[in-house]
């Protein structure tokens, strides 16, 4: 399984179970997120802790989903950045667009507020 889903109360947690999240899986991932938003999910946490690399296509899909999500008043928050992934977010200034947390609990608490 490339993506593992779990539900924590009203929060959907999406774990990216890939060392390299790239264009091969980007479309699937985008589809999953967009469908989740369509079916009414408003709080999504994406867990990157298994990931060592994200490419531009994958990031692009994530941003498209975020845009769709903010339009309906929800949010996508991120956790589990490894150094290389964190750098990629910082270099692209995407860290200013997404809210990121150290662990799942922090992200869930942030949604509970």
């Amino acid at each position: 399984m490339n993506f593992i889903e779990q539900k924590r109360n009203d929060v959907l947690v999406e774990v990216i179970n890939l060392a390299r999240a790239t264009l091969k899986e980007a479309d699937d991932f985008k589809t999953i997120l967009l469908k989740a938003i369509e079916s009414g999910e408003r709080k999504i946490v994406v867990d990157f802790s298994q990931c060592d690399f994200v490419d531009s296509t994958f990031l692009g899909g994530l941003v498209v989903s975020l845009k769709r999500m903010t339009a309906v008043g929800g949010d996508i928050r991120l956790i589990g950045f490894r150094p290389a992934v964190r750098s990629m977010f910082e270099l692209t200034r995407m860290h200013k667009v997404f809210e990121a947390f150290n662990n799942l609990d922090d992200a869930l608490t942030s949604f509970a507020k």
């Binding site: 531009s56 692009g60 941003v63 498209v64 990629m88 270099l91 692209t92 995407m94």
Partner: peptide, 16 residues
């Protein structure tokens, strides 16, 4: 075929 956001991500990473 790509959306604005995807295009921007590709271009920015290309530039970096």
């Amino acid at each position: 075929e790509l959306s604005t956001e995807e295009r921007i991500l590709h271009d920015s990473i290309q530039s970096i």
